[in-house]
């Protein structure tokens, strides 16, 4: 698979699913063009519902449609999906025991020119608190397609953190994925880079190459699923390398870093030292993605530097 816009993969996957399953419906809140679900609407006009600029309304409508057996995929920018419509996702969807797939797009710094108002650094922290849901952040076109298919087949509500822009594939098209399972992208012995989401996983892979040039063997884990978290894979790698760097395009607290810290704190042994990379209790701001990655210290070279610092310390 070549580089591909993630939103195009999302829309194609849903359209394909809908051809076999008439329960699949798409809900949008005036961001159908941004999410790229236009082709779904062209093919299934009755099953694409645009509610207008009303995210809270959209999620309760989705809950209502789920009571009738439909499987709504409701998408909007991650900031609105979670901050603005949190109570609706919590109560009308998850608490009500319903099956709504909430899709939060433009994660973290990828919100770029929309700026701090639109930059979700806290969406994962919010939805992690909702009992019984799945949370995934696919890292490339192949994992996105597979995880959307899997999430569609599961009976519970879910949050899919969707990078909309193009990403290069990290996996062959034959790779298989499972909600709750991470992937070891590269084996190593000196440090574990546990990264979540397209930008971070790609940067972690590059960081591992930079570290290799300096004689440091880095293992790269593509976490993929924040909830359930693949404790087995992360703990095994941690015990092997003794040092884990969690890397997320999100606040370093309440997301991946916290989830890994909880895992380590409750382990009977001390599996590894942990360094949490992510946003350090700051708000987002406007700029190019490259500028923002530098500003918040999430480039490949920042990851490599953090590893070297930790190994020295």
């Amino acid at each position: 698979m070549a580089d591909k816009e993630m939103r195009a993969v999302y829309a194609e996957t849903l359209t394909e699913l809908a051809s076999k399953d008439d329960r699949i419906v798409v809900l949008e809140a005036d961001l159908m063009r941004a999410t790229g679900t236009g082709p779904f609407k062209e093919k299934y006009p009755d099953r694409a519902v645009n509610v207008g600029v009303a995210e809270a309304n959209m999620l309760s409508i989705a809950g209502g449609m789920s009571t009738e057996g439909y499987i709504p995929f409701a998408a909007t920018f991650g900031c609105f999906a979670t901050r603005r419509a949190f109570d609706q996702f919590f109560l009308s969807c998850a608490y009500a025991g319903l099956n709504v797939k909430l899709v939060g797009t433009d994660p973290g710094v990828s919100a770029a020119f929309n700026g701090g108002t639109h930059m979700p650094f806290e969406d994962l922290g919010l939805v992690r608190m909702v009992p019984g849901i799945d949370i995934v952040e696919p890292s490339d076109p192949v994992s996105l397609k597979a995880l959307v298919q899997q999430i569609a087949a599961r009976p519970n509500s879910a949050y899919i953190r969707l990078h909309r822009k193009a990403l290069s594939p990290l996996y062959p098209e034959t790779a298989t994925f499972e909600v709750g399972k991470a992937k070891v992208l590269r084996s190593g012995t000196g440090v574990t880079l546990a990264a979540l989401g397209g930008l971070m996983v790609h940067n972690a892979v590059t960081a591992a190459e930079l570290l290799a040039a300096d004689g440091i063997s880095a293992e790269v884990i593509d976490v993929l699923s924040l909830k359930p978290l693949d404790a087995e894979t992360i703990l095994a790698s941690a015990r092997k390398t003794g040092l884990v760097i969690s890397i997320e395009n999100h606040q370093a607290h309440n997301g991946l870093g916290s989830a890994v810290a909880e895992l380590f704190a409750e382990a009977a042994d001390r599996p590894a030292r942990l360094v949490r990379m992510g946003i350090q209790d700051q708000f987002g701001e406007v700029g190019t993605e490259a500028w923002l990655l530098e500003k918040f210290g999430l480039r490949a070279e920042d990851i490599a530097a953090a590893v070297k610092k930790a190994l020295k310390g």
């Binding site: 419906v25 009755d46 099953r47 519902v49 809270a56 309304n57 309760s60 409508i61 989705a62 809950g63 209502g64 449609m65 789920s66 009571t67 009738e68 057996g69 439909y70 109570d87 609706q88 109560l91 009308s92 608490y95 009500a96 025991g97």
Partner: peptide, 25 residues
Amino acid sequence: IDMTTGSLGQGFSAACGIAKALKIK
């Protein structure tokens, strides 16, 4: 009970979602 309610306003949106689903069906 057809829908979980309690956080005011939400049930009415959910009702609209049910009505829309009935129309699609």
